[in-house]
């Protein structure tokens, strides 16, 4: 009981009620603040199957997992999406280069697998049409294919390279491939305040192999349950990078998405910003739109 968790916002209660309604539980009694901890996990248990290995054994681990699960599951059910973004890479001297990227995502069927995504580069012009198709997994390495339009060649690539930089940016491959709940174990640290928001601070530890991190510290707001900031600690447990997520917007389907990501590398003073355009949802995509054969239709 030491890590009692309480809702502060009426929106959160409403969201929880809606979730309960969907789940058909209708047990409003569990919404009393004293029982909020259990209520979070009951919501989770009703609609999703918690991974006991990822959820851990201690109360801190449970609570950390449940907060992360709620954040993840709040935006569940979007089906598919497409969005363009600009990647701005800034070196220590402040010089900028940019890449325009388009990403299409198919939501996972359940939490035992990951999302499928297709990333296509639009600029720089010499790599236009280069694409990366990923089938994210939980603990096994993701399946990834690279498409090189000049050669019309698709190539399965090793995804053991979790910690390497993604196309010269401050984002590692593991930051970029979809953030699956069960890829980590968790530990609740404390409540806190970030930019005037009440946040839950939790640590997460990669369960998959070849991660470049010992741990990540995430800050999730208590109002709409979105991750606002993540600090990444390298293999020596020194602070390596900080990711800030801004400009959250809610779409008609209820899903929240951040539209600005800022990744600062404290060890090199380099920075990468991702600036997103509007998301498109409801594209009616299916598994067949994410098989490797689609790569050859890109260019």
């Amino acid at each position: 009981m030491a890590f009692r968790y309480s809702f502060r916002s009426p929106h959160a209660t409403l969201a929880a009620l809606l979730l309960l309604g969907v789940a058909g539980l209708g047990a409003a009694a569990v919404l009393s603040p004293a029982n909020a901890q259990e209520e979070v996990s009951e919501v989770a248990a009703a609609e999703f199957a918690n991974d006991p290995e990822a959820r851990g054994t201690t109360p801190e681990a449970h609570k950390g997992y449940d907060i992360a699960a709620r954040s993840d599951r709040t935006d569940h059910g979007y089906g598919d999406s497409r969005v363009s973004f600009t990647m701005i890479l800034r070196n220590a001297a402040g010089q900028e280069t940019t890449r325009d990227v388009n990403i299409t995502t198919l939501e996972k069927a359940d939490e035992s697998v990951g999302d499928k995504s297709l990333v296509i580069f639009e600029t720089p012009a010499d790599v236009r049409g280069t694409a990366l198709l990923s089938h994210a997994k939980i603990l096994e390495p993701d399946d990834q294919w690279l498409y090189l339009p000049a050669l019309k060649r698709e190539k399965r690539i090793a995804s053991a390279n979790k910690s390497g930089p993604f196309v010269g940016s401050e984002f590692a491959f593991e930051d970029f491939t979809t953030q699956e709940l069960n890829k980590f174990t968790y530990k609740y640290i404390s409540e806190g305040e970030l930019d005037g928001m009440a946040v839950d601070i939790i640590e997460r530890y990669p369960r998959y192999e070849n991660s470049g991190y010992t741990r990540q510290v995430s800050y999730t707001d208590q109002e709409i349950f979105q991750v606002r900031k993540v600090e990444f600690y390298d293999r020596r447990d020194a602070l390596l990078k900080t990711l800030t997520l801004d400009d959250y917007r809610q779409y008609e389907n209820g899903v929240y998405r951040a539209h600005k990501f800022t990744m600062v590398n404290h060890q090199t003073n380099k920075e990468t910003d991702l600036v997103y355009e509007d998301y498109e949802f409801g594209l009616d995509l299916d598994e067949n739109d994410f098989v490797k054969g689609v790569l050859r239709r890109i260019r």
Binding site: P141, R156, I157, A158, A160, N161
Partner: peptide, 9 residues
């Protein structure tokens, strides 16, 4: 054929 495992192709 290609067999992809860890860092090996």
């Amino acid at each position: 054929l290609q067999y992809t495992k860890d860092a090996w192709l």
